[in-house]
Design a protein around this nucleic acid. Structure first.
Length: 423
DNA sequence: ATTGCTGAATGG
């Protein structure tokens, strides 16, 4: 239905010369190759009639084509054509902040007999989320309260931060382009969009089998009943033949990050390993994705998707075909689990390497931490801000002025100060 | 929910 543009990866010319079998594993791995079924002609019926759709597609298209300077320009001229509601002068009477609203015991007024006791919405439901990203969780690790505000009021972003992020983004893109091309593929359904992610993953498996290096590898998995997605920066083999995950972090200042940042980054790469390993161990059964994301396996894939799949070496007609291929290729390709996790910090402006950290993977600790973060999303506990020792984080936070967590933390000791006990 | 819902990551 919705026509939108997504980008996808092509494995491009560069074969890592050390790879033994040049055409190893090319999708042949799967004995299950779907029949090249009926090419139905142009079922393009619904493309581009709704103005909203057209707008979104245009947005997606442009934002990915813009250079950084163009992006910055856009950011600096704040929407001339469409005055933003919260922006400047504001006859904004409806400015009741949708924050908090965690008060749960609202009802119970009239129908006293019928206590229907509607379960309060979990945050996952409140934001209509069917999945979380790895970076959602690592952001949560920095400050959960800030992460929540970020969802409530995404407009509050310091421009300095935006600049830094965009620089990091373009550096990553440049590196990605070193190992493969990026092509645009039109998608016409949700299944198409997910098919693209899966095709990107599938196209990288043979490269890994051949001992090559891949960047931006998608991972999916379920932890504690919640579907997670992420993108691994880089996977390659060390001289010893270990499979190494490399994460690049570019920095504004030419110095190593604080412990808090390292902690967040360590967690991020550990999560990638956790999910990747589970994938190749066969935990990503075809129905896992369809159940969590509510997709239809029988949904025919769009013509551009099928065409792209063929280019990458797979013949598929419906979404379910791709799910089967994914499962088979992940489990039968004999990929190793990730042996080594490294994070390289580098200075943005000078491109100076600042240091590389090797991260220890402690499965139990990672599990516990994920469990704790996911408990918030499942509504099993309230949102938490930073501990008092980490209150310095609030200095660089756009939400510190309005932060409930800060307020309650500040009030607490003050009120008690009158009751100071001598001991 | 009436119904439906997201490129992830980008950095401090």
């Amino acid at each position: 239905m919705l026509a939108s543009e997504l980008r996808t990866r092509l494995p491009s010319q560069q074969p890592p010369s050390r790879g033994p079998l040049p055409c190893a594993g090319l999708q042949g791995a799967g004995p299950a190759r779907c029949c090249a079924g009926g090419r139905r002609k142009e079922e393009t019926g619904a493309a581009g009639t709704c103005p909203c759709v057209a707008f979104q597609a245009a947005m997606a298209g442009t934002s990915s084509e813009l250079s950084d300077s163009e992006i910055l320009q856009l950011l600096e001229e704040p929407a001339r054509d469409s005055p933003q509601p919260g922006d400047s002068g504001q006859p904004n009477s409806s400015s009741d902040l949708p924050l908090d609203s965690l008060s749960t015991e609202v009802a119970a007024d009239t129908a006293a007999g019928q206590v229907k006791r509607k379960r309060a919405q979990t945050p996952l439901e409140k934001y209509s989320l069917k999945y979380l990203s790895v970076t959602d969780l690592s952001t949560q690790s920095w400050c959960e309260q800030q992460m929540v505000y970020g969802r409530e009021l995404p407009l509050l972003q310091a421009s300095e931060k935006v600049r830094l992020l965009n620089t990091g983004k373009s550096i990553h893109l440049a590196r990605e382009l070193e190992v493969h091309d990026i092509v645009e593929v039109r998608t016409t359904s949700k299944e198409d969009s997910w098919a693209l992610k899966i095709l990107n993953l599938l196209s990288m498996i043979p490269v890994l089998q051949a001992g090559g290096c891949v960047r931006e590898l998608p991972v999916f998995g379920v932890i504690d009943g919640i579907f997670l997605v992420g993108i691994i920066d880089e996977l390659c083999y060390t001289a010893k033949g270990e499979l190494e995950l490399r994460e690049l972090k570019t920095r504004g200042r030419p110095s190593m990050p604080s412990e808090a940042q390292k902690k967040r980054d360590y967690f991020q790469v550990c999560l990638y390993k956790y999910i990747f390993d589970a994938m190749i161990q066969g935990q990503l059964k075809p129905d896992v994705i369809t159940r969590h994301i509510r997709l239809r396996p029988e949904q025919p894939l769009g013509s551009q998707i099928r065409q792209h799949a063929q280019k990458v070496g797979f013949v598929v007609t419906c979404f379910g075909d791709l799910l089967e291929l994914m499962y088979l290729n992940l489990t039968l390709s004999d990929l190793p689990s990730i042996d080594r996790l490294t994070i390289e910090y580098s200075h943005q402006d000078s491109d100076t390497p600042l240091g590389t950290e090797v991260v220890e993977f402690e499965e139990e600790k990672v599990r516990e931490r994920v469990q704790c973060y996911l408990a918030y999303w499942k509504g099993q506990r309230e949102v938490q801000g930073v501990e008092i020792e980490e209150a310095w984080k609030c200095r660089s936070c756009s939400y510190s002025e309005i932060c409930d967590w800060r307020r309650t933390r500040a009030d607490g000791p003050e009120q008690r100060s009158g009751l100071k006990k001598s001991k």
